[in-house]
């Protein structure tokens, strides 16, 4: 029996309103942390530089921000750079919440636990602000990864190829996307039953990713692609700084503990993705960046940790579609 028309309109409208409210909450805290003026004077010039071919922030995200700013400037909006950055951040937060909803539903989670997951994610995002820019590239990377695993869990593997192109255009750590696609394809359905064909899409995505990456780096600068060999020094700094642990605790909260409880009920797709990406991702960022800037860890949080935690919240009989 179909639900009443009112429910078919009202329920999605309520969910959309809640997602927007949570996106605004996270954006408010993210912008407030350094102040909008700081973002305008320190971050926006880096975005402009990135689309000019200079080493800097991710090209794709920078292009989105600068394009939006120029459009707002053209229509005569006041403070166009600040407005563009706030608008883009709200849009990214909202998209992340909605993409997660689609992905988690495909994994077999029911809407109510996902609502609590949204709340957890929004609060987690309010703790990703330590001495950070608005880091549009990290959020775009996160969105691309969720889109990829969502597509794979839905058996729509063809989406992975354009997503790999976007990942190569976005950020130097975009290698996480082909890796995620590989792991998720091994762990879940990709719409192709034969084992040999199952890996065709991930291989195509990886090749295209590399091809685009090489073209982009030829155009910009290879030296930016190869990170400074900070290694042990950076790792030691990250491990010794209390803020690393404080910010990680604020970002992940109780979710890793709950993920342990829900692990056995979590679909294989999440297991494979976690095994392939979590250790590498943490090792990479602890040795190459300030780990207290925890926006980079949102990706493993939303792809692996949060869904596993939500499976601990759901009675086994309530799981609907398990890939």
């Amino acid at each position: 029996m179909k639900p009443p028309v009112l429910n078919r309109i009202a329920v999605p409208a309520i969910f959309a309103a809640l997602a927007l409210a949570l996106a605004l909450l996270a954006a408010f805290n993210q912008v407030k942390a350094q102040g909008l003026s700081w973002q305008e004077t320190h971050y926006y010039p880096a975005l402009e530089a990135a689309i000019g071919g200079e080493p800097g922030e991710g090209g794709l995200s920078a292009a989105m921000a600068v394009g939006l700013k120029r459009t707002l400037e053209w229509v005569g909006a006041p403070r166009p750079a600040g407005l563009a950055m706030v608008a883009l951040r709200v849009a990214q937060n909202l998209a992340l919440l909605l993409f997660c909803y689609g992905y988690y539903r495909r994994l077999g989670l029911r809407p109510y636990p996902i609502l609590l997951g949204w709340m957890a994610l929004a609060w987690a995002m309010t703790h990703t602000t330590w001495q950070a820019t608005l880091a549009f590239d990290s959020y775009t990377e996160c969105l691309l990864a969720v889109a990829a695993v969502w597509a794979l869990s839905a058996g729509q593997s063809r989406w992975c190829v354009p997503l790999a192109v976007l990942a190569a255009l976005n950020k130097s750590t975009g290698w996480i996307l082909p890796l995620t696609i590989f792991a998720a394809a091994l762990g879940g359905p990709v719409g192709l039953p034969a084992e040999r064909k199952r890996l065709a899409t991930p291989i195509a995505a990886a090749i295209i990713y590399l091809a685009v990456l090489i073209m982009v780096r030829e155009y910009t600068a290879w030296h930016h692609f190869v990170p400074r060999p900070q290694g042990w020094e950076q790792l030691s700094e990250n491990l010794r700084t209390p803020h690393t642990w404080g910010q990680l605790a604020g970002t992940f909260g109780v979710l890793p503990f709950l993920a342990v409880l829900g692990w056995t009920r979590t679909p294989q797709l999440v297991h494979y993705t976690a095994a392939a990406t979590l250790p590498l991702w943490f090792a990479w960022h602890f040795t190459h960046s300030d780990a207290a800037a925890t926006h980079v860890f949102l990706l493993p949080l939303v792809v692996c940790v949060l869904p596993a935690a939500l499976f601990a919240m759901q009675a086994p009989q309530a799981e609907e579609r398990t890939p």
């Binding site: 609590l116 709340m119 957890a120 609060w123 987690a124 909260g253 109780v254």
Partner: peptide, 10 residues
Amino acid sequence: MLGIGLLAWG
């Protein structure tokens, strides 16, 4: 446990 996790964030 999720409840007290949400409380802590709040």
